[in-house]
Write a protein that binds this DNA or RNA. Sequence first.
DNA 1: TCCTATTGGTTGCATAATACAACCAACCAT
DNA 2: ATGGTTGGTTGTATTATGCAACCAATAGGA
Lengths: 392, 392
Amino acid sequence: MAHYISDVNITRVLRAVWLNQGLSRVDISRLLDLNKSTVSKIVGYLEELRIVEQAAVGDAGPSGGRRPIQLQVRADWGCVMGVEIQTETFTVVGINLHGDVFFSHTEPLDLRHADLVDSFIEIVRRFRPSLEATGMPLIGIGVGLPGFVDPVRGVLRASMPLEQYDEVAFVERARDALGVEIPILVDNDANCGCWGELAFKHSTRPQNFVFVLGELRKHTIEMDDYRIMALGLGLVLDGDVHHGTEYSAGEFRSILYRVGTVNQFSISDAEARRFLRDKDVDAMIIDELARHIAFLVNVLNLGKVVIGGPMEILADELIAAIREHIQQNWAYPNMVDCQISVSRLGEQAVAYGAAGMFLEHLIRVPSVRTDRDPTAPCGVELLPRHGTELPV
Amino acid sequence: MAHYISDVNITRVLRAVWLNQGLSRVDISRLLDLNKSTVSKIVGYLEELRIVEQAAVGDAGPSGGRRPIQLQVRADWGCVMGVEIQTETFTVVGINLHGDVFFSHTEPLDLRHADLVDSFIEIVRRFRPSLEATGMPLIGIGVGLPGFVDPVRGVLRASMPLEQYDEVAFVERARDALGVEIPILVDNDANCGCWGELAFKHSTRPQNFVFVLGELRKHTIEMDDYRIMALGLGLVLDGDVHHGTEYSAGEFRSILYRVGTVNQFSISDAEARRFLRDKDVDAMIIDELARHIAFLVNVLNLGKVVIGGPMEILADELIAAIREHIQQNWAYPNMVDCQISVSRLGEQAVAYGAAGMFLEHLIRVPSVRTDRDPTAPCGVELLPRHGTELPV
DNA sequence: TCCTATTGGTTGCATAATACAACCAACCAT
DNA sequence: ATGGTTGGTTGTATTATGCAACCAATAGGA
């Protein structure tokens, strides 16, 4: 006697447990509209893979009955490395399947004298042992880069701060150097901020929000005289990170932008350099930014705004300004329902989110192809393509 | 001997044929990654339902081989009614499954003296015979309304022009009056514009675009002294119409909006009234609108802008302004790739799109539930829930 | 304390969707 | 004609899932 199991529903069950730790088999069968015997078999398979375990026994209902067995994803099934590379620093984090950060490291990096991909390969080689010292196998790597990234092909298409205007075959080159056994996913840095909010918010997973990432950096890696605020947006729409037709979604420039400047607002570059050192400049930027964010909140009907990066210093003023403009920009009498908050992850938001992005793709139901090309990012595969025969 | 067939793949096959008329069975099997025998059986079932037919025989390849049988959806399998209701007029269209308009009618409507839902019921009763006179059964109705609409529950949540600030149970009331046999779907008018672009663009189906709907109307139905331009946006992101958390996505108000006015821009209401009669006002509105559209194009990385409604009169200037601002608002050296065009459907764009929305839902693969509540709009069902036994 | 109703979970079997392989049909080129 | 090639069909094997009957464990009452 043997039981057989399908791909899609395995992933659905795994994802259900991941999103909602403590679910019982019957809970899952009700949630996913599957027969409880089917769920039993799938859970048995996932237990055999050692990715799901029986965590606790819940309480029986008021009218009696057997107590449910609460399931959870095993935190130590594997670990994921998250990397953020900026123009002058990089950050590495290691997380387990529950999203707990057990390792983190930030260090200066000078991309004027080193190649982007080579630096990344070096970082992975250097920190992989630290992660695997926990005994958990490294199951994948997520990377956040400034610039716009095609996560499907794993390519950096262009980057202003990194001065890359031709495609860089990031994943391909890294995989050649590091071997194929570890899948690598790449995305834009602000989008990684979004992934971080998505991956471990489980029950309260927001469906529509914007991640506002402000970095204080040199205009390009070659210029080392002054730093200005560089702003990138990451958008989650209908539960998914939005990339756009050419993967450049999130690139921000004010509606009032003045031709000839390098900053993204309607101020002069001389003013932009005084950001964080001149109250008047701060106020102008905050007002202009808040208006644009408010516009997006209303036009896209976002339920949430998350602020990350050094903007956090001005968070109180910014939050107040956004809140005011959202309401002013709204034509109906009701109050707009939109939470505005600061990312609690601080410096690590992007690297952490990059790792979260990997998990999110690992535990994702394969998209049922309806038309042309499938859009699954390059090669994350949890399970063998066809069912396995199980002993009773 | 009997063959059995699944729900999901029936819809996938039907959708493939619908999106790509002239596909052969092998084409489908390659496209959807199904075995050709499976496709044969499913196509047989769809032929039996008389929704798919063998249309023509294609040419054999250069290296010989049997000639492929090209399939297509039968245009006359049924017809769909599309309705647009505005503050002062309504429009009805009838289309077949290929999207050909075989009936259309526009007429004044005074919602000051008639209830919205009652008027709709009346419209359906009055025009249903005209559609069914073709011999095709009426399989569904799509409705476009100004205001924001929850298409899942079929409810008008609020509408400025209709002066509705409480929920109207549109579908529920209409269904009670008209009977359950005809499913009804509702959405916002600008969103219906999007559905029209989606439903029948088949091969060149755009994945990310904005539909700019400008209506010249009274500020509210009660005020009959003057008309101003009312602008609504419809957004398609990653191939799907975007509604947002509370279904209010697309509500537009300028970043420079002045508190106290009823128009959506930074001009005074006195100026707004001179729209289309004063070149200076036109120029101000065009510039301000173009900047906002350009901002959205870049931030969301849209591949297309479609202009509908009476704005069409100023289309040339508007298109030029949008094009200019898109490029000005873009930081990288390359040209932004974004088509800007005017909806060819003119007056009928919304009603036609409403009908298209219905078809799009009819021929849509059921979403595999991964978490909580399913988001399929109320009751469109093409097929019996379980497989049917077929004779050989 | 024992019975009953109730809920969670498992097992053997039935059902049904899909793949596989072998076939036929129709076309090209030589 | 003949063989190579592609499209489509048919019988059979595989396997995911549902169903119904079962066991396990609980609450509440008699």
